[in-house]
Design a protein around this nucleic acid. Structure first.
Length: 556
DNA sequence: CTGAATGAAAC
DNA sequence: GTTTCATTCAG
């Protein structure tokens, strides 16, 4: 039975301002996405039972001043820490305490902090950094933000797999809560609450905070412009000089200058202008590493915002984030998945390891043929997604992100949207979670330039990806890049797996999807994930999907 | 322990 | 609608 029909595909509304390239009719050359079966695992689950959760989520980032030799980049990792691990910082937790899975912003923040985009000299206070990161977060292009949401979904899935019985119990887990009972003071503790407690722009009572907010906004805007490290430091310094701000006035409470938000962009512009002027003189400064001014190096190592990237929003709603990816997969994390009530499109049994993470995956296409199966992330067209796919079941899905064309030679960045998963530590061979394969790409080939290329390989680990292509890599080298362990095997068990097609920096928005059964398929024999532009090896028709679509893959 | 951010989930 | 808690660590 078809899992996907062409008419089900929802088209992107390109009227948005997300900077996505215009859709064109199948500009891609045929390509094949291949999974290898003997892969390096993507997730590290500690074999030590005393460690509740230890997962590497992402790849970090080279310090701004790091040389562009990926093989030399430090292997930094963001991971869930056991309570013991963070005994030195933060709250003391019982050894058995199970922390919540991080949300997208928390993951982003962690990565941001780790990447050291903002030098300590610019801002070392984490509260202030949170402000800056929050502002920067709001400027993230939808595609990029979706990646972090996908990571959060992954974290949820992992968390759920590891702690199937865990349940979020506000106030019940923290040891600190015990003290609350003793004194009313703690319970009366003033705090910002939910939406209501957050700062409201224009509120006179927040005037002071607002003025302190200015520097954060400036820094965030500079980050949006791509400035990091020394560049950022210099730009901030110039801004401070040009505006009379004291060093490290930060976003903390400072004596306001009375400037309104409208002045901020101007001030940033001033800072940039000053910087530009300064650069002229700095060319003779031997202190400045040449690499800093090398456009190629900059492109390679730093985030380069899209041309349309906006500065920090002024608070008015931004429709880029109308429909978060997480909404598509929303479900109760803590409650064990119950019996699916939905219309099953298949009677496939689900009894293997897939269940642990993707329990009760089903798609309600029988009753919502027009909207099910393929969900556009475009807000205008996903209003009824809640009944297109069961909200009760989609939360345990793991999106497989299919990257689009990547420019040859462009290395991973700290916030590379493609670089969804990263691990440099070995996975127990017992890892049997095939669905947790976020598609990663090999950055070495360009199908645009090489029409004959058919080897976009998905790799389960980006450890190598982080460092560039392994020396031994060839398209057919299974040991270099491979699919998640047992991916093909599990797929062969006729499981369904959702495919989320992400598009970020590619030159095209279209993928042609071979669907022998109106679903993506996996060749259980060799683990190949077929993805070609014309017709598949069986002569089946293909359907067209596009970035942002989410569809189930039906393995057979 | 608190602050800061955003967001998920529970009240 | 409100509250807690995920991350992080200086203060």
């Amino acid at each position: 039975m078809p899992a996907i029909r062409e008419h089900d595909i929802l088209q992107y509304n390109l009227d948005d301002d997300d900077g996505m390239p215009p859709l064109v009719d199948n500009p891609n050359p045929p390509m094949t996405f291949t999974f290898f079966t003997d892969m390096t695992p993507i997730t590290a689950l500690s074999a030590d039972p005393t460690i509740p959760f230890e997962t590497v989520w992402e790849n970090p980032v080279p310090a701004p001043a790091s040389p562009p030799e990926f093989a030399e980049l430090p292997e930094t990792q963001v991971k869930f820490q056991s309570p013991a691990d963070r005994a030195s910082h933060g709250k003391k937790r019982d050894a058995s305490y199970i922390p919540r899975p991080p949300n997208a912003f928390i993951l982003f923040r962690s990565s941001f902090i780790r990447s050291q985009q903002v030098p300590e000299k610019v801002e070392g206070n984490h509260s202030t950094l949170s402000k800056i990161i929050g502002k920067y977060w709001k400027t993230l292009p939808r595609e990029e933000r979706e990646v972090w949401e996908a990571k959060a979904l992954f974290a949820q899935a992992e968390h759920r797999k590891r702690y199937p019985d865990w349940r979020f119990r506000p106030g019940a887990n923290a040891l600190a809560k015990v003290k609350v009972k003793d004194g009313p003071q703690a319970s009366n503790r003033k705090r910002t609450t939910g939406q209501a407690g957050r700062k409201v722009k224009g509120d006179p009572a927040n005037k002071k905070a607002k003025s302190g907010d200015e520097r954060c906004t400036v820094i965030a805007d500079l980050l949006v412009e791509g400035k990091t490290g020394m560049d950022l430091e210099d730009a901030v310094r110039r801004w401070e000089d040009s505006t009379g701000r004291g060093v490290n006035s930060a976003c903390k409470d400072v004596t306001g200058t009375g400037k309104e938000d409208g002045d901020e962009q101007r001030e940033v512009a001033v800072a940039n202008e000053v910087e530009t002027q300064g650069k002229v003189t700095s060319t003779t400064n031997t202190e400045v590493p040449a690499i800093i001014d090398d456009p190629e190096s900059i492109r390679a190592n730093r985030y380069t915002p899209p041309p349309t990237r906006a500065q920090t929003p002024d608070g008015s709603h931004d429709d880029r984030f109308r429909i978060p990816l997480t909404a598509m997969f929303k479900r109760s994390l803590s409650a064990p998945a119950g019996q699916s009530s939905l219309n099953q499109i298949s009677s496939h049994h689900r009894h293997n390891s897939f269940d642990s993470v993707f329990a009760n995956v089903s798609y309600d296409i029988a009753e919502s043929p027009q909207s099910a199966c393929i969900l556009s992330l475009n807000g205008d067209q996903t209003e009824d997604f809640s009944h297109a796919v069961s909200a009760d079941t989609v939360g345990c899905l793991s999106p497989l992100v299919l990257p689009s064309v990547l420019r040859e030679g462009v290395p991973a960045r700290w916030n590379d949207p493609y670089n969804l998963l990263e691990t440099s530590i070995g996975l127990p061979p017992s890892l049997d979670c095939p669905g947790l394969a976020y598609g990663l790409h090999t950055p070495t080939v360009s199908p645009v330039e090489d029409q004959s290329f058919t080897g976009y390989n998905f790799c389960a680990t980006s450890a190598d990806f982080d460092k560039g292509l392994p020396p031994s890599y060839t398209r057919d080298t299974q040991n270099a890049y491979c699919a998640p362990k047992n991916w093909a095997e599990c797929a062969a068990l006729q499981e369904q797996m959702p495919i989320f097609i992400n598009e970020y920096a590619g030159t095209t928005n279209f993928y042609d999807w071979c669907t022998p059964h109106y679903g993506a398929y996996v060749d259980g024999t060799n683990g190949s994930y077929h993805f070609s532009g014309d017709t598949d090896q069986f002569g089946n028709d293909y359907i067209r999907v596009q970035a942002g679509d989410c569809l189930p893959a039906v393995a057979y």
